[in-house]
């Protein structure tokens, strides 16, 4: 098996005196597409933030791309973060600045270019290439906040991919999207993983958004890792009922998965 891209050992995160994440061990290997699932408040985003050293940990260690992220001085940590593409949850726009789509996507090249240095022609070529790849070239000079939620998320994905990351972290990229956009995202992630063979860690709530490339699910509940395996294995038996209450059934077909209310006709 390939070397671990992410390896957490005895990981514990404490917030306001409460343990919100307690993971004895988990490792994700190079080229894997892994989904991190679980109910609201299970600790999924906290885990992602801890991977990026945006969230302090109380105990244990996290190694990302072979480096212990929580003991790195600032410069090596910044260099490590440049290798991690991060697509955050889409927040309401908090600023009024009419940043263009191209400017937002170019932020993926900012740290790589270095402080006080301008982006090079190669940086802009990468940015434009990813915008085109994701079908955003016609929006390049539009203001980011003028785009729909689905398009904005694609811009954030373009930003992360422009970093040329070894690891891609996606935090609920399909949340609140309509069926058409959601399916576009599933196909896009499938295609990107096949083409790039990078390591993907996707946080999501719905089985329907897992592309066939996703062969492994980590299931968190109340900060604890309760299952780790294939989608079929993780959601077999009464797992969904345990998590969300009675009356759900899981289906699997052609590498895709879904949930239907069990009592439905």
């Amino acid at each position: 098996m390939n070397s671990p891209v992410i390896e957490a050992q005895d990981l514990r995160v404490v917030m306001r005196g409460r343990c919100v994440l307690d993971v004895p061990h988990v490792s994700i290997h190079e080229g894997e597409f892994v989904a991190l699932m679980g109910p609201n408040g299970a600790g999924k985003t906290t885990f992602l933030r801890a991977l990026l050293a945006l969230q302090p940990i109380a105990h244990g260690s996290i190694r990302v791309l072979g480096q212990e992220v929580h003991s790195l001085p600032w410069r090596p940590l910044a260099q490590l973060r440049q290798k991690i593409g991060y697509v955050p949850q889409l927040q309401p726009i908090t600023g009024d600045m009419p940043l263009t789509v191209r400017e937002v996507a170019s932020m993926g090249r900012t740290a790589r270019a270095g402080l006080f240095k301008r982006l090079t022609a190669e940086d802009w070529r990468q940015v434009d290439a990813w915008l085109e790849k994701l079908g955003l070239q016609y929006h390049a000079h539009h203001a980011f906040h003028e785009l729909s939620g689905g398009e904005q998320r694609k811009v954030l994905l373009a930003r992360a991919l422009a970093q040329e990351p070894a690891l891609l972290l996606l935090d609920e990229p399909t949340a609140h999207l309509d069926l058409g956009w959601r399916e576009q995202w599933v196909q896009l992630l499938q295609q990107l993983h096949l083409e790039t063979r990078r390591t993907f860690l996707l946080i999501c709530h719905e089985l329907e958004v897992l592309p066939p490339a996703c062969q492994r699910v980590l299931l968190l509940r109340a900060g604890r890792l309760v299952a780790d395996g294939t989608v079929q294995k993780v959601f077999e038996g009464d797992r969904l009922s345990d998590l969300y209450g009675e009356g759900f059934e899981v289906w699997h077909r052609n590498g895709r998965h879904g949930v239907v209310p069990g009592g439905a006709p």
Binding site: P88, L99, V104, L115
Partner: peptide, 26 residues
């Protein structure tokens, strides 16, 4: 000199830090 860093910070300080930008200094 810091146009690109300020742009990223303005967009989201958390995202900028996550991408390896020296947010605190800038």
């Amino acid at each position: 000199l810091t146009a690109k860093e300020m742009r990223a910070i303005l967009f989201s300080r958390t995202d900028a830090a996550a991408a390896g930008i020296h947010v605190t200094l800038v």
